[in-house]
């Protein structure tokens, strides 16, 4: 069982919703990433999504694009990101790390090398934004052979047939994009999200994380009512941006923010659990 599957099993057993923060590796400095990952785990992160910077992040909004540009200005490559994960793994053998990024840096590294080096560094899975299952056969096989999970996005526009098709290749969890738009966009329609998450769960057996549009404790709590995991990206990255000049303050600040979200999510979980018990 993969580290991601184990983590979701534990969460399910304890009737808790996962909290999955996203940061861009190397933003605003390469040195801060590993301490920040550790601080996020201490504050209650269950899985970490680590963004691999790419020059043309077409599915991301302005907040994450700027994070990418800050990281690229420091020369952060895919190889450097894998090294960060390796360092993180020296002190944390249990928290899953999922890389989130675009295909081209992986193409340049080579599929086989990527799968091998990512597994060796302690990466648990990858979400490659611009690689739908239709185009992914070779890389999927190589990653599976290394025990890496393949996390996929699902969108409000995904048909039942597509959801099933993605279910055939996805592992670990799936990431439901809760709004039509890019990262950091829009308002969350909780009722619509609940319906769609239900539809996804009726089609595929994996945990469903919900992201895009989760800005604070309140929205996190709402999503926790309907999802197996709450994924928070732009809300974290925009705080990192405001602290870019004082990176040493970032781990504490983000840790405090995640602790608030954790508390709000756990409060929902308790009430859901107690309702279920009644």
């Amino acid at each position: 069982m993969s580290r991601i599957a184990q983590r979701f099993q534990q969460l399910q057993d304890s009737k808790r919703t996962a909290l999955i923060p996203f940061i861009t590796a190397g933003d605003p400095t390469p040195q801060i990433t590993v301490p920040l990952m550790q601080a996020m785990v201490s504050a209650g992160a269950d899985v970490i999504e680590l963004g691999v910077p790419f020059s043309d992040p077409m599915a991301d909004g302005p907040v994450i694009q700027r994070a990418t540009e800050r990281a690229l200005a420091q020369g952060v490559s895919l190889t450097a990101v894998l090294e960060m994960v390796r360092q993180f793994r020296e002190h944390d053998g249990t928290t899953p790390v999922v890389l989130m990024g675009y295909l081209n840096p992986i193409e340049v590294m080579g599929y086989a090398q990527f799968a091998q080096q990512a597994a060796a560094a302690g990466v648990d899975g990858a979400l490659i934004v611009d690689l739908p299952p239709e185009e992914g056969h070779d890389l999927i096989a190589l990653m599976k052979a290394q025990g890496l999970d393949l996390v996929y996005l699902l969108a409000p526009t995904s048909t039942a047939a597509r959801i099933k098709r993605i279910g055939d290749v996805a592992s670990g969890f799936v990431y439901y994009v809760s709004v039509k738009g890019v990262t950091g966009a829009g308002h969350l329609d909780t009722a619509a999200v609940a319906a769609q998450v239900g539809a996804i769960k009726s089609l595929i057996p994996l945990p469903v994380g919900v992201g895009f549009g989760i800005k604070d404790a309140e929205t996190a709590a709402k999503v926790a009512q309907v999802a197996d995991a709450v994924i928070v990206g732009s809300a974290i990255v925009s705080q990192i941006e405001t602290l870019a000049a004082t990176p040493e303050r970032i781990p504490d600040t983000i840790g405090n923010f995640l602790a608030e979200l954790r508390q709000a999510i756990d409060a929902v979980d308790c009430s859901v659990t107690s309702r279920a018990a009644e």
Partner: peptide, 20 residues
Amino acid sequence: EHGHFGVYGGMFVPETLMHP
């Protein structure tokens, strides 16, 4: 039918765009 010219072309897009 998948938009490939040999190894080139294709549909390397986020899931949101696959259906449109």
